[in-house]
Amino acid sequence: MSETTPAHSESAPPESPYGDDGRDADGLPAEHRMLPRTRPSNAIDHVIMRVGNAASWIWALLIVVIITNVTVRYAFGRATVWLEELQLYFYAIGFIVGLSYAITWDRHVRVDALAERWSRRTRAWVELFGTVFLLLPFSGAILVEAVPYVRTSFTLNEASSSPGGLPHTWILKSFIVWGFGLIFLAGVSRLLRCTALLFHRPRPLW
């Protein structure tokens, strides 16, 4: 990777040292770099990476909970509703936090049959418009709508309606807010990287 590549270059993006774990030396994902990095976007991306990395252990925990639940029921004939519900908690938290993680890793599926023939600048424009008119308003609106939703649950001290289920449902519901907050942030980061390429603001670092 060369730090000196001009940001407005129309040539292919510089190859990054694609490590075994798919990360650059700075710890951020080495997507096949369409967009330059910037200081503020790096800051956001580091946060999302940290949260996502930590949250990813939840899948290992989920296995443990499932196996415990099956064992307890089959071997000891016991059923534990809260353990059943804990599976749901882990699964739900995992995927909703993961949504932003997948943005930062650029892993959301794209139908790029046409787009792959376009120039880098054109694609950056598309990314810019998509982020401004689709991703940011959508995630922002959900974020705004989710706050009263969670607050109601909190005020009513909502609990599981299953016998022996988990209390404080608002905790799980609040992950809609956290999750979409992170999605919004991840979107802002991508937006900054688009403007860096197109207008040199903020300053592209490559």
Partner: peptide
């Protein structure tokens, strides 16, 4: 077909 992520 713009190639923007399907989900969004």
């Amino acid at each position: 077909f713009t190639g923007f992520p399907l989900a969004w």
